[in-house]
Design a protein around this nucleic acid. Structure first.
Lengths: 147, 147
DNA sequence: CAACATCACTTGCTTAGTCAAGTGAAATGA
DNA sequence: TCATTTCACTTGACTAAGCAAGTGATGTTG
């Protein structure tokens, strides 16, 4: 065995890192009574509302089913509203949701940044950001190789 | 709003990328009847067996509870064995599990690498790998800021 | 206009994972 | 020696998400 290439090593490192930082972020957001996934969805709504469920799902790379459930939870918590609009449901924040995301946002963005700022120079940060842009874009277009 | 720093932008890009590539990887591994998480666990066992559940959990950054469930599933599929050993359970691959991971490994490592190789130069790959090493290491030691 | 197709969303079943309380064997100590 | 602690693991209740089948409005067409 032991056929680890540079690419597969990097991949596994990135997986471990995102996993780990996601857990820490969840722990951090507990003080605002939110999870990382919820924060992510709320901030998208805040930025792009009004929008439909499918648009939202597409933005956070989740299936429609997943989004449906997530929004059910958020609605139960009273953070968002769904209004039937012809065949579409339009999503928007409630006052409570708005207040929640506004309170959490500065610290959360700061916390996310801290992962990088604590180890990288500005130069390195810029490099990483450029590389990640390319990667993310590419992965959105990537197709499976034939069997 | 709009307080996105370079760090928080990079963070979100990395999350989207890993999420996306994880989904593609799951789809890819279907041809071997495995999921990404299962592949990850099996390859760790293959590399480090014999080892205990807690050691394994630590390696793949998952809680003990999560590992317990994962191994229950893998055992039900006949891919691994758990032997009670004093108070510890020792994990090892069955013949079936061994064969499974050996078949899947080359293509899967190749697939993981392809995310990077399709967009990066060798130089960029090396840079990214170095940056990710630092990040991963740091995140494993990171503590939450005080409230 | 009735039959069918399409679209946006929901839901059952499954994997994966968290946390915290529970269990049972082994070690320690009064 | 019996009581208590510790350790490794399990389990119940939950969040999160995928897939595929189902639902119920809206549009299209013979």
């Amino acid at each position: 065995m032991r056929k680890h290439t540079l690419g597969s090593l990097t991949w596994i490192r990135m997986m471990r890192f995102t996993n780990q930082s996601n857990q820490l972020s969840n722990e951090f957001l507990k003080r605002f009574d939110l999870t990382t996934a919820q924060f992510d969805v709320l901030i998208q709504i805040k930025t792009y509302a009004p929008l439909t469920q499918s648009q939202l799902a597409e933005k956070v790379t989740v299936t429609q089913g997943g989004m449906s459930r997530m929004l059910t939870r958020l609605e139960k918590e009273g953070l968002i509203e769904r209004k039937q609009n012809w065949k579409t449901k339009t999503i928007s924040l409630t006052a409570k949701g708005e207040q929640m995301i506004d309170t959490a946002t500065p610290s959360q963005l700061q916390f996310q940044s801290s992962f990088f700022e604590e180890v990288f120079t500005t130069e390195e940060m810029k490099t990483l950001n450029t590389l990640m842009s390319k990667l993310e874009k590419h992965s959105r277009e990537k197709k499976l190789p034939p069997v």
